[in-house]
Design a binder for these strands. Structure first.
Length: 214
DNA sequence: GACCAGGCACATC
DNA sequence: GATGTGCATGGT
């Protein structure tokens, strides 16, 4: 399906909301931690966990490596699922130390396809978390698909409701210019739109995608 | 009190 | 290969 619609929708969202300045995290490591903690979780809860980690000066690979499971669990508790997320953070760190001596700089020199393969082999990192890390921590050209993307674009009949992650991703990447900055902004705009119009109080009349242009 | 959030792994059929 | 379920907190 060829679709200039995707560019059109992007332009409309960008005009409506402006740049989103993603990812909401300063360092590369903070992006990675946030990507894991935000799995099926509201970002406001993730922020509390990140604040706890920062207060304890624990937002670094070495500190996460050395910290005890129970104490890491206490710090990230506000982000929910804290037992499995503790394991997932530790899993990423074990990978980073066993293959890259704990260095994100070394990891960042990997080619995109190799990076993707390795991230997906880490227990607790699935397609979305992997692609979020690739795009927002390592600036690789991959389009991130999430629940909002599927919901919004299937509602507008651009993707099938039952389409899986890779189908949706392929649709976007086949029909958009392959630019990291565009992928970055588009996903952020979709999340912004989803939060405001597809959550507790959907108001489709006010949605920028439904307003007539002009 | 019910329902949901920027998923993922695992069990079961 | 498809479908169901556990994981947990905090906001509406």
């Amino acid at each position: 399906m060829k679709s200039g619609r995707l560019v059109e929708i992007y332009n409309r969202l960008y005009e409506f909301y402006g740049p989103q300045g993603w990812w909401p995290g300063k360092t590369r490591f903070e992006v990675i931690v946030g990507a894991i903690l935000t799995q099926n979780t509201a970002w406001s809860n993730v922020e509390k966990a990140i604040v706890n980690l920062k207060k304890a000066k624990s937002l670094s690979p070495k500190r996460i490596k050395d910290i005890r499971y129970d104490s890491l669990g206490r710090m990230i508790k506000p982000s929910g699922y804290y037992n499995i997320k503790t394991k997932r953070l530790k899993n990423f760190i074990s990978f980073l130390y066993s293959k890259y001596a704990g260095s994100l700089d070394r990891l960042s020199t990997q080619r995109a396809d190799k990076l993707k393969e390795e991230l997906l082999h880490i227990n607790g990192i699935g397609p979305e978390t992997c692609d979020s890390i690739m795009l927002y921590a390592f600036k690789k050209k991959v389009f991130v698909v999430d629940a909002y993307t599927k919901r919004i674009f299937s509602r507008h009949s651009l993707v099938k409701e039952a389409a899986d992650y890779h189908e949706v991703q392929k649709f976007f990447m086949d029909n958009l210019p392959k630019r990291e900055k565009l992928y970055n902004e588009y996903h952020a705009l979709i999340v912004r739109l989803g939060k405001e119009f597809c959550q507790s109080k959907p108001n489709c009349k006010e949605c920028p995608l439904n307003k007539s242009s002009g």
